[in-house]
């Protein structure tokens, strides 16, 4: 009788261990599923930071270009002003003619 009881106890213990293993397995899977959104959010955050860096980089690149373009514009304006002086006399004559007509 004692032997049967002993074996039953061993079986129950074994069942308990298996049940425990199943519970642990389910817990691990649940935890992994819970981590899912955190992992995705972390990746998205990393991507957003990367995008922010890309935008800053492009803006800096554009600002350098703007400096260069601004210099070109100022230079063009100086050229326009200088060149216009040679045609100023003829322009005044043309306006005078227009006023008389």
């Amino acid at each position: 009788m004692n032997e049967i009881e002993h074996i039953k106890g061993i079986e129950q213990e074994a069942e308990k261990s298996i049940e425990q293993a199943r519970d642990n397995a389910e817990k691990k899977i649940r935890e992994t599923k819970t981590e899912k959104q955190q992992i995705i959010d972390a990746e998205k955050e990393k991507a957003k930071q990367e995008v922010s860096k890309m935008i800053d980089k492009e803006k800096k690149k554009a600002e350098k270009e703007v400096e260069s373009l601004s210099r070109s514009i100022e230079e063009e304006i100086r050229d326009i002003r200088n060149k216009s002086q040679s045609g100023m006399e003829k322009t005044i004559q043309l306006i005078n003619k227009g006023l008389m007509e």
Binding site: A47, K48, E50, V51, S52, M54, I55, K57, E58, K59, K61, A62, E63, E65, V66, L69
Partner: peptide
């Protein structure tokens, strides 16, 4: 991908 487009757009807008 969207950020890359946005960055290029930001550059083009400034220019």
């Amino acid at each position: 991908r969207e950020g890359e487009q946005e960055a290029k757009l930001a550059y083009r807008r400034i220019i």
